[in-house]
C-alpha cells in the first residue's frame, strides 16, 4: 500500500504561531515527523490539536515560523497543492460528502489523484472490505464508524506520503473503535507516516512511535520511550 521505508525527515514544523483573527491559539509550536513514523498528538479539548493539523494541511497559515514538508517550504502552498504532493488530512467532524454515494466519494479522490477508479476502490476497500457492499449508498446514510472508515479509505487513494488524522475514534462505540484500531495498525504495518490526534489512550499506546502532548496551544512534552507511552495513568493526567 505505502512506501517510505527510509527514516529521513518528512515534516519539520518550526516555531509556528497560528491565530484566529486576534486570538493566538498556537504559540511557538515545533515538531517533526520522520518517514514511516506514526506519531500521536494528545491534549485536552481546546488545546489546539485540530488547529495544528489544519495548519500542516495548508487550510490555515502560520503567522510566524515555518513548515517544511518533504524538503519544501509550504508557505505558498494551498491545501489542494499540498494534497497533490501527498498530504491527506482527515478532519475531526467525520464529514463525508453526504449527498454523493460512497463510490462517488471515492471517485472524487481518484479524480484528484489521477488514479484509476478500480485501483482507488481497491485501496479504499483493502482496509475494510465491508465498504464494497455500501458503494451505492448515499454517504450521508453511513454510520459514524463507516464514515470515518470511508474518510480514511478515501485518503489512501493516490498513495499519499503523509496522513493527518484528527480524532478518528471520537464518538464511536467500543467495537467500532477496534475496527479503526485494526485499520490504523494495518496502515502502520505498511509504513505510513502519520500524525494522529487521539484521546483514546489504549489506541495511543498500542500504535505510537512517539507522542506529543499539547496544552493551551503549546507542545509541553514529547515522549519517545515505550514505557512512558504505556503509562496511561500518567498520560491521562494531560487529558
Amino acid at each position: 500500500m505505502l512506501l517510505g521505508k527510509g527514516r529521513g525527515k518528512l515534516l519539520d514544523v518550526k516555531e509556528i504561531d497560528v491565530t484566529y483573527g486576534r486570538a493566538k491559539v498556537l504559540h511557538d509550536v515545533s515538531l517533526q515527523l520522520n518517514q514511516g513514523e506514526v506519531v500521536f498528538i494528545v491534549g485536552r479539548n481546546g488545546a489546539g490539536k485540530t488547529t495544528l493539523l489544519k495548519t500542516i494541511s495548508g487550510l490555515m497559515k502560520p503567522s510566524k515560523g515555518s513548515i517544511v514538508y518533504n524538503g519544501e517550504d509550504t508557505r505558498g502552498l494551498s491545501s489542494a497543492k499540498l494534497a497533490q504532493k501527498g498530504v491527506r488530512y482527515v478532519a475531526q467532524d467525520k464529514k463525508v460528502f453526504s449527498h454523493l454515494t460512497v463510490r462517488d466519494n471515492i471517485e472524487l479522490a481518484a479524480y484528484a489523484a489521477g488514479e484509476e477508479m478500480s485501483t482507488a476502490i481497491q485501496r479504499t476497500t483493502s482496509i475494510y472490505p465491508k465498504l464494497n457492499d455500501l458503494m451505492d449508498n448515499k454517504a450521508g446514510g453511513l454510520s459514524g464508524g463507516e464514515r470515518e472508515i470511508l474518510l480514511i479509505g478515501r485518503a489512501l487513494v493516490g498513495n499519499p506520503r503523509l496522513f493527518l488524522i484528527d480524532e478518528p475514534t471520537e464518538g464511536l462505540a467500543a467495537i467500532v473503535i477496534e475496527d479503526i484500531f485494526r485499520i490504523l495498525s494495518q496502515m502502520k504495518g505498511h509504513n505510513v507516516s502519520a500524525f494522529i490526534v487521539e484521546q483514546n489512550l489504549s489506541i495511543v499506546n498500542r500504535l505510537a512511535d512517539r507522542v506529543y502532548i499539547m496544552k493551551e496551544g503549546k507542545i509541553i512534552r514529547e515522549i519517545s520511550e515505550k514505557p512512558e507511552m504505556a503509562d496511561t495513568k500518567d498520560l491521562e493526567s494531560y487529558l
Binding site: A80, L100, A109
Partner: peptide
Amino acid sequence: KIVVAALEDRDGVGCLGID
C-alpha cells in the same frame, strides 16, 4: 459531483487535491 461536494464541504474537496 465536485460542485455538489464543494457546496457541502469546500475544504474537504480542496484537501483531496482539487482546486
